[in-house]
Amino acid sequence: MTPPGPRATVPGPSRPGARVHGGAARPFTVLLGPDYAGKSSVLRRLADDPSWTVVSYDRGLLDTGSPLVGRVRDEFLAEALCDPGRYSPDLVLSLLQVAVVHLRDRVATAPRDTHVLVDSYYFKILAKCHLLGLRNEALFSWWRGFPQPERVLFLDVTPDLAWRRSGHGADANSLEHYGERPTAQTFQSFQTDLRRTLLTEVSHLDVTTIEPGHTIEETVRAVEAATVERVNRNPQHV
């Protein structure tokens, strides 16, 4: 299956305004953004701080007690992404769902005495699947029924800067651009659509945008400040 070109239609949450905490151990924050926004660097910094619980399936951030999730991630990156037409959309979505459900489960069991910061949650996987024609609305509706975050911190980046950070496409995978190969046009067009789709998907939530151009240290401080502000306004959450 060759991913289609850009689409004008952008999905929205099936339950706008919903903020569901039933089933979650405690409130949490999601760090979200387009590709190459610097999100992983921020998460790695905060993962070293014992006052934070960072929830992610990325290599280096995945908790050591979830080796199955790591193996599925590695096989997906090594095989399914390198040969996009080999497996059916439903099978690809089934693999991606392992990551989505893992994030939900880790939020539910996170320690109550730490700030819980989740890497993209289901939002980014859902947005990318929609843009690339990997669609299963029943599955997406189930994801949207997961407990919702207290806040989304949107780490922004321009498509041009993201293109440069990707090594002008050298590091881009097939979930980061339209078409068979990344070019400046197919990559930046996808990232533009991704940004818009992500913001639509979380429009029913409290979103704080962290503008591009900050150093990692400045971005980490902005994430810390936004989270602490929320806790100070709702001290019962910690």
Rank of each mutant, 00 (worst) to 15 (best):
P4Y: 06
P4T: 03
G5D: 00
G5E: 12
T9A: 12
V10K: 04
P11Q: 00
P11K: 00
P13I: 13
R15I: 09
H21A: 14
R26D: 11
F28K: 03
F28Y: 10
T29W: 07
G33N: 01
Y36E: 04
Y36P: 04
A37E: 08
G38W: 09
K39I: 00
K39A: 14
S40K: 14
S40C: 03
S41D: 01
L43R: 12
R45T: 05
R45D: 10
D58P: 09
G65N: 01
L68Q: 15
V69P: 01
R71K: 11
R71Q: 02
D74H: 00
F76I: 02
F76M: 03
L81V: 08
C82D: 15
C82H: 13
G85H: 07
R86V: 09
S88P: 05
D90Q: 06
L91I: 06
L93N: 05
S94V: 08
L95A: 00
L95C: 12
Q97R: 15
V100H: 06
V100L: 07
V100R: 08
L103F: 10
R104S: 10
D105L: 05
V107C: 11
A108L: 07
A110S: 09
T114F: 06
T114Q: 14
V118I: 06
F123P: 07
F123C: 08
K128F: 00
K128R: 03
H130T: 04
L131H: 03
L131W: 03
A138H: 06
S141I: 01
W142Q: 05
W143P: 00
W143K: 01
R144E: 11
G145L: 05
F146R: 05
P149Q: 10
E150Q: 14
V152R: 12
L153R: 09
L155H: 07
V157K: 09
D160V: 14
D160Q: 15
D160K: 15
L161E: 13
R164G: 02
S166I: 03
G167M: 12
G167H: 05
G167D: 02
A172D: 07
S174T: 04
E176F: 07
E176L: 06
Y178H: 00
R181A: 10
T183V: 08
T183W: 11
A184W: 13
F187K: 03
F187P: 03
F187G: 01
S189Y: 08
T192E: 14
D193Y: 01
L194H: 00
L194Y: 03
R195D: 12
R196P: 04
T197I: 02
L198S: 04
L198T: 09
L199K: 04
T200F: 13
T200W: 12
T200K: 15
T200E: 14
E201T: 15
V202Q: 11
S203R: 10
V207C: 03
T209S: 15
H214G: 06
E217S: 08
V220Q: 02
R221L: 09
V223F: 09
E224L: 12
A225H: 15
A226Q: 05
T227H: 10
E229M: 12
E229C: 01
E229H: 12
R230D: 12
V231K: 12
V231H: 06
R233W: 13
P235V: 02
Q236G: 10
Q236E: 15
